[in-house]
């Protein structure tokens, strides 16, 4: 049960983007389409899993004073591997994600999990934590890109990440009424702002409910 909790907390309760507000740069930049969001989600999850496992394995060898540089070198190596693999196997995605693949190195989620979880916990726990956080990130960017693509282009489309010519689905719902602002940077900020407000709204509601329950118990 405890293992399941480690995995689950990254998905919702401690979602890296909606709750912890980590790694917002890439989450805002690449959420123009569902395809990009899935590609970036996969890349971040891969790097996160590998870095958490490696750092968890090395946690007793790394001297405490220089742990951050060691973490960053491990992460940079992994990101470079993922970048080269994506260049080889998903060229279209590599092209459209551009500089944001190498910038995974400075994504706060990865260094943050290495520092606060993997350097203190065992391999299995770290693996589960990375899986949960990675899927939480993927879920969050998918939600943002869903709204941005739907409002910005008036439809939704998804291409096979490994073969850009293969269309999984491509629907246009209200193409004539698309608000192209939402595919632009300004729209990204506003979409995320509204989603965060919704998350905060849920949190406030939950707190009020808990308060009421407590008062009822006292009575």
């Amino acid at each position: 049960m405890k293992k399941l909790d480690i995995f689950k907390k990254g998905l919702f309760i401690e979602n890296p983007i909606f709750v912890l507000l980590l790694g917002l740069c890439s989450a805002l930049a690449i959420t123009t389409s569902l395809t990009n969001a899935i590609g970036m989600g996969m890349a971040v999850t891969c790097v996160l899993i590998m870095s958490n496992v490696i750092i968890s394995l090395l946690r007793n060898i790394i001297p405490n004073e220089i742990r951050i540089p060691v973490f960053i070198v491990v992460i940079a190596t992994l990101v470079k591997c993922v970048q080269m693999l994506m260049n080889a196997y998903t060229p279209a995605l590599y092209e459209s994600l551009g500089v944001f693949i190498p910038l995974i190195v400075v994504n706060c989620i990865i260094l943050g999990r290495a520092e606060s979880f993997a350097s203190k916990n065992g391999i299995v726990d770290s693996l589960l934590d990375a899986l949960g956080m990675g899927l939480g990130y993927t879920f969050a960017v998918l939600v943002i890109s869903f709204f941005r693509e739907l409002i910005g282009t008036g439809g939704l489309s998804l291409y096979n990440p490994f073969d850009a010519s293969q269309v999984i689905f491509d629907v246009k719902i209200f193409a004539d009424y698309a608000v192209s602002l939402f595919t632009q940077p300004a729209g990204a900020f506003m979409t995320l702002g509204c989603i965060l407000a919704f998350v905060q709204f849920l949190k406030i509601k939950k707190e009020k409910k808990a308060k009421k329950l407590k008062e009822a118990e006292v009575k």
Partner: peptide, 13 residues
Amino acid sequence: SFKGTPIALITAG
């Protein structure tokens, strides 16, 4: 609901 980060992001937008 908009207090803090959400309104800051909208301002940035």
